[in-house]
């Protein structure tokens, strides 16, 4: 049994602020090494050219502390709160919103959040989308994922027939990537959530994107196989980097799964562009 540990809201604000500024300017090593590898094996000149520019951009962004992409994203967070944590000095959710607000203002990030109907900008990139989970322990793990709109627009949730099986799921995912073509800024990472309810599948797909790029599903060998085969089929489509043609359409497919209702097979495909920003901190 852990002793109750206090975490002040100020600490949450600072951590969230730092995470969103860092992830928006400093591309993770997982993504960089996947792109470097792709650049070596790409067989079209325009595809290679696009990958070279992507690597050049990552260097400039880091050296000059500039956002990697003008779309600095909707702020998505996964927060695992230890059940022995006591948040002090304010409101937990508001602390996260304040961290996002400060990151986007002080980090000169683009405010990309608006009213869905009037399209009026909220002005500070809030509200962030916060997924909180209560877990054992007395620490707080915060995963920050600025999520771009272009790749999000190429995502969807469907209810497949329960008889679809692994093959049906694979066909559906490949078809989504094919239809998206150049739109989501390939090379992409494809997050797939299988099972649960409709919203659970979407959450799993998003969470799959938080995994280090290319790390296979370690909990179920069937899913690791699905990831491998789906990626192979996607990269045979020929879409290539930026849709200019080539063998690098996706860098990875990440699948997460949970049991579902006997009548259903929910599947969400959540596409992530090559600027796959995610970072975490443990308080």
């Amino acid at each position: 049994m852990n002793a109750i540990r206090e975490i002040p809201c100020d600490r949450i604000v600072d951590t969230v602020r730092e995470l969103f500024i860092r992830t928006n300017t400093d591309l993770g090593d997982d993504v960089l090494s996947a792109i470097r590898q792709a650049e070596q094996s790409e067989d079209t000149q325009l595809g290679k050219y696009a990958l070279e520019k992507i690597l050049e951009n990552a260097k400039i962004a880091k050296d000059d502390s500039l956002p990697l992409c003008q779309d600095t994203g909707l702020a998505v967070l996964f927060v695992e709160v230890g059940q022995d944590v006591h948040v002090t000095g304010g409101d937990f959710n508001e602390a996260i919103q304040e961290g996002v607000r400060r990151a986007y203002r002080e980090g000169f990030l683009r405010k990309s959040v608006c009213d869905p109907i009037t399209r009026a900008n909220t002005g500070d990139n809030t509200p962030a989308v916060i997924h909180t989970e209560i877990v054992p322990g007395n620490t707080m793990r915060i995963i920050a994922m600025p999520k771009g709109g272009g790749s999000e627009n190429m995502s969807n949730s469907v209810m497949l027939l329960p008889s679809a099986g692994l093959e049906g799921i694979r066909e559906h995912v490949v078809d989504m990537v094919k239809k998206a073509g150049p739109n989501p800024c390939p090379p992409t990472i494809v997050g797939v959530g299988i099972g649960g309810s409709i919203e659970k599948s979407a959450l799993l797909a998003k969470k799959a994107l938080a995994r280090p790029v290319g790390e296979p599903n370690r909990s179920d060998p069937r899913l690791a196989g699905l990831e491998r085969e789906t990626l192979q089929e996607i990269n045979a489509l020929g879409i290539g980097p930026q849709g200019y043609g080539g063998r690098t359409t996706s860098l990875a497919v990440h699948v997460e799964m949970t049991p579902c209702h006997i009548a259903s097979l929910p599947v969400t495909v959540n596409i992530q562009c090559h600027v796959a920003r995610h970072g975490e901190a443990v308080i």
Binding site: K53, I54, E56, N57, Q70
Partner: peptide
């Protein structure tokens, strides 16, 4: 004309 998505720091210059 296609501009590459996700190279915005480079294009800023």
């Amino acid at each position: 004309l296609g501009a590459m998505g996700g190279i915005a720091a480079l294009m800023s210059a």
